[in-house]
Design a protein around this nucleic acid. Structure first.
Lengths: 117, 117
DNA sequence: TTCTTGACCTGGAGTTACTCAAGGCCGGTA
DNA sequence: TACCGGCCTTGAGTAACTCCAGGTCAAGAA
């Protein structure tokens, strides 16, 4: 499929996909005879994964490493697993941060309520 | 107190505090006779709030607006309340994102496990 | 008293991760 | 044939820090 559809399906913007490809984050993107990118379903799966990793705060350097491993084939699965497990721990930390912030917000809002009475 | 202590207490870095002040995010910071910033406990509370707002994804423009309202006194509390409520809704969205990503990660990890057997 | 150290200051450059705009190609439709 | 939409590349712009150079100043050591 074309880049606009890949964007719609993955959640990434067209510009971001091109940028990610240039930075080596998207292996195996082929071009048609017209020079345009063609995305396979596997490409789109990969982009979708990148979308969620980014959305939850994975730095590009890590994504780059992850993509390099992905490009090297199934032998790198243990390493990739390690990266995803690390990220999963980051998610837990972020959830804690959200809880902490929620707490602070509700305390602040209570104080506001008192002023408003 | 001095800037390094304000940084330690709020979670922000020294550089970030100076940057935030320059951008108008930190009202009422006074200077000593030596020209150095002195932070009151109220300043530190404010910085701590900014820390958590940033940590959970509030854009600087919003923080700027929030700070401007704060600087104008208690009359702006309804507006500030609105901003914090908006942010609270953003937190809920982020929690959903984390759940969604967790799901995707565990599916991916399952697939990896299968390869590893 | 002079020297050194450490914390602070400003201004400006560098970084990350996009994001947008300019200018150009190409295939399909009116 | 003329236009249009979607694609292309290159390069500039933006957000939010982050770091660095070069300088001041107060306080303790020699």
């Amino acid at each position: 499929m074309r880049i606009s559809e890949a964007a719609a399906r993955s959640g990434l913007k067209v510009d971001t996909i091109r940028y990610y490809e240039a930075e080596g984050l998207v292996p195996n993107v082929v071009r048609g005879l017209d020079g345009q990118r063609r995305f396979s379903p596997e490409n789109v799966d990969w982009l979708t994964l990148l979308y969620w990793l980014r959305e939850t705060g994975m730095p590009m350097k890590v994504m780059q490493r992850f993509a390099a491993l992905y490009a090297q084939g199934d032998g790198t699965i243990p390493d990739r697993k390690e990266i995803l497990l690390d990220h999963s721990r980051l998610l837990a930390k972020r959830r804690d941060d959200l809880d902490r912030c929620d707490e602070i917000l509700s305390r602040k809002l209570e104080i506001y309520e008192e002023y408003l009475r």
